[in-house]
Design a protein around this nucleic acid. Structure first.
Length: 481
RNA sequence: CGGGAUGUGGCGCAGUUUGGUAGCGCGUCUCGUUCGGGACGAGAAGGCCGCAGGUUCAAAUCCUGUCAUCCCGACCA
């Protein structure tokens, strides 16, 4: 029995003391991942992969609902293909892994392990697209990609990671732009309604945009330590790739034209965002819609008459009702031990059932987010849990939104900007002239990057915070993962 | 890629300064008593001390190299 109430989970470093350590403690102790023998590469264990499967399911449904189909393109990309789009190669060159040998023989052409699939997909689209009747092409693939990063952290940056990449081709510029925005909006809606994470949506600056894109749009989230995390991007590729790969079609008017393309993706990094937005001193706090286990049942004194039978009956009922529920009937662990364990693992609702409950035909529900305890008659259980999961979701979202608002500051001039950087954390909203020089200066001086030019613009001042020239946009600046 | 730290049973650590039989706590296994916020007793298993060289009669300990992880920077989803 824990004598000290503070120490529900004895072995997690507090967020205050060391946020990074808190993060690694959590991911290891809750069995999300383990380090592998390969530098910078992690094993995603079932509990972590379960979260990813739920993310996949929710997103995939949304992709299908917006007319997309899944396909799979090769892992290996011939060097000549990768090199076709100049900006694209230059952007990715430093982090490409190369295959030089196969079956013991040196290859005549090196193969890149895909860092992203634009080039190989474009090479195929050039073959498949002939007529305006072939358009639009709306494909997505779920796969792994490799980027040879110098510094790695589980979920946030690993050499190999899982993601989805959508690649579409359209007849007109307008249609491509519409698609770009539509998918960004899918990401934003998904983040808010499934992950319970509020996002700032906007456009990337020229400096920060995707290598080879015409323009890049992003959703940015704020972590509890005040650093921003890019959670999803949607690119309007324009005709850059269409021209170098010659993806052309014959239009109604008999003219041969190049297609307009988009690409968009989210990664397993989202799991890192979930941890760093919702987690607390006791460990993980999982949003109900992606939690691998939504209800954990802990039977109390279950050797006693009727307890386990009743628990099993309730378990079957909840499972049939569609909840992700598990019954922890291990007799090797005490009830109290299990409470702490499942709290650390972030399960949204704990269901306790003991001899006294069996007598009264009720159970005890305890919420992970606010630790509220409720006694619920068995016949009301399904409805109560359904509503409680909804409330937890809403509670998490509101809390995250409050956290973000409290950590979003406005700077009208450079003195104010400096002061905020030195004394606060989080997003800084400020006016910017649009010149990359000013962006660079802020990065050099403060290590802050322009996260995005938000769609929801405010006019905070007339002049650029940096150079004093006329301001064009309001920008969110932050330190970023 | 720079700066710092750490690698010792599954996990957390001590031992390294001053070389001399590898230890502690937790966990694991067996049996029993327990069970509404990390239970207790008795017994048991488990380690070529990250890896590779070197010095020495003798290396977890000293030297060289190497790999990995963590933290702080520069680069990136």
């Amino acid at each position: 029995m824990s004598k000290n109430k503070q120490e529900f989970v004895a072995h997690i470093t507090s967020r205050e003391e060391d946020f990074s350590k808190w993060y690694t403690d959590i991911i290891l102790k809750t069995d999300l991942v383990d380090y592998s023998p390969v530098r910078g590469s992690m094993v995603i264990k079932p509990y972590g992969y379960g979260i990813w499967e739920n993310i996949q399911r929710e997103l995939d449904n949304r992709f299908k609902a917006t007319g997309h189909k899944n396909a799979y393109f090769p892992l290996f990309i011939p060097e000549s293909l990768l090199q076709k789009e100049v900006d694209h190669v230059e952007g990715f060159a430093p982090e490409v892994a190369w295959v030089t040998h196969g079956g013991g023989e040196e290859l005549t052409e090196r193969l890149a392990v895909r860092p992203t699939s634009e080039t190989i997909i474009c090479s195929m689209y050039a073959k498949w697209i002939q007529s305006y009747r072939d358009l639009p092409v709306l494909y997505n693939q779920w796969c792994n990609v490799v980027r040879w990063e110098k510094t790695t952290r589980p979920f946030l940056r690993t050499l190999e990671f899982l993601w989805q990449e959508g690649h579409t081709a359209h007849a007109t510029e307008e249609e491509a732009q519409e698609e770009t925005m539509k998918m960004l909006n899918v990401y934003r809606e998904f983040s808010e309604n499934v992950l319970a994470i509020p996002m700032v949506a906007g456009k990337k600056t020229e400096k920060e945009k995707f290598a080879g894109a015409m323009s890049t749009y992003t959703i940015e989230a704020l972590m509890q330590d005040g650093q921003a995390l890019q959670a999803g991007t949607s690119h309007n590729l324009g005709q850059h790739f269409a021209k170098v790969f010659d993806i052309g079609y014959l239009d109604r008017d008999g003219q041969r034209k190049h297609v307009w393309q988009t690409s968009w993706g989210v990664t397993t990094r989202l799991i890192g965002a979930i941890i760093m937005v919702h987690g607390d001193e006791r460990g993980l706090v999982l949003p109900p819609k992606v939690a691998p286990i939504q209800v954990i049942m802990v039977p109390i004194a279950f050797h006693k008459e009727g307890v386990l039978d009743k628990a099993e009956a309730i378990y079957e009922g909840l499972k049939a009702a569609g909840f992700r529920v598990e019954l922890d009937d291990r007799d090797t662990q005490s009830a109290g031990w299990k409470f702490n364990e499942w709290e650390m693992k972030g399960v949204p609702i704990r269901l306790e059932i003991g001899p006294r409950d069996v007598e009264k035909n009720q159970v005890v529900l305890v919420r992970r987010d606010n630790h509220e305890k409720t006694f619920v008659p068995v016949e009301e259980l399904t409805d109560t849990i359904h509503n409680m999961l909804e409330e937890i979701h809403k509670g998490l979202y509101d809390k995250a939104l409050t956290m973000r608002e409290e950590n979003t500051h406005v700077a009208h001039d450079m003195d104010e900007f400096k002061d905020i950087v030195e004394t606060r954390k989080g997003f800084i909203k400020a006016m910017w002239c649009g010149d990359v020089g000013c962006e660079d200066r802020i990065k050099d001086e403060f290590s802050l990057t322009a996260r995005c030019i938000p769609f929801e613009q405010e006019k905070l001042a007339d002049h650029c915070i940096c150079c004093g020239e006329e301001a064009k946009h309001m920008v969110y600046f932050a330190r970023a993962y």
